[in-house]
């Protein structure tokens, strides 16, 4: 059952982010769209932020548009994002706590799966009603503004096991074109005035209050991809994803 849950999670996330990315394929710059549920109370002690295992995937797009998973780029992006989290939390005076990955394919402990799965459903809902492109966005009159979603008591095991105040979830997808595909896109544009999608990155971050389960902040980052061989540019992308973190 654990395997089913986890595989389902990644499948849905990929589909969601892919659907979101398409309309922004030609976006020339990086855009972020933060939502904040409410201003957080100022803490007297450094808040403890539990970083959940970042869900990262990097692919290479060949001329035919076939996506090729790149484990090396994925590892680079993952490391860059974690460094960005560490830097950002340090700037906020917050303490970073790393989630202890479980052995095997599923990185989560059994007792945390309920919260992980519900987070996926809530995130899917937020993407549908807040972040979908306007022409595709569904209306939800009962939740027209802000963030009013929660994971409820499902977060209790995370709170207990890590004594953390917040949990930070990161999802990041990066598609980078081969040189040949980039040239093909440029030629298509010159000859036919049609720009083929080339490189892009999409990420979403969410901060969960582990006392109440409330989703307190989310941010969506979309834009052109970057030089995957430059870790500093991945860190920069991670810092943009975390911009406006309400700590």
């Amino acid at each position: 059952m654990c395997g089913t849950r986890q595989l389902g999670k990644y499948r849905l996330t990929r589909r969601t982010l892919a659907a979101l990315a398409v309309p922004f394929a030609l976006a020339a710059c990086v855009q972020v769209q933060p939502y904040l549920a409410k201003k957080l109370p100022s803490a007297t002690e450094p808040v403890r932020v539990l970083l959940m295992p970042p869900d990262v995937a990097a692919i290479e797009l060949a001329t035919a548009g076939v996506p090729l998973p790149r484990a090396d780029w994925t590892a680079l992006a993952q490391d860059g994002l974690v460094e960005a989290v560490a830097d950002t939390l340090k700037k906020h005076g917050a303490e970073l706590i790393r989630y202890r990955r479980a052995a095997g394919i599923v990185p989560y402990a059994e007792e945390h799966l309920e919260a992980i799965a519900l987070h996926e459903a809530v995130l899917q809902t937020i993407l549908t009603y807040r972040y979908a492109p306007p022409q595709q966005r569904a209306a939800l009159p009962t939740r027209q503004e802000g963030l009013a979603w929660t994971l409820g008591e499902s977060v209790a095991p995370l709170r207990t096991d890590y004594a953390a105040d917040y949990a930070l979830f990161l999802i990041y997808r990066q598609a980078t074109s081969t040189v040949e595909r980039a040239l093909f896109a440029a030629v298509s544009f010159v000859l036919f005035g049609f720009m083929q999608p080339t490189s892009q990155s999409v990420g979403i971050a969410s901060l969960i209050d582990l006392d109440t389960g409330a989703v307190v902040w989310t941010n969506l980052l979309q834009g052109q991809s970057l030089d995957v061989n430059r870790p500093d540019s991945i860190r920069d992308r991670g810092e943009r994803l975390l911009s406006g973190l309400p700590l």
Binding site: T125, T128, Y129, A139, L140, P141, T142, R143, A148, W149
Partner: peptide, 21 residues
Amino acid sequence: IEWSRQQDRKLQIWTVDGPLL
């Protein structure tokens, strides 16, 4: 309470937080 409502032929779907929840 207040609900968001969708109408189909012989069906109404009501939700507050989103039908996935």
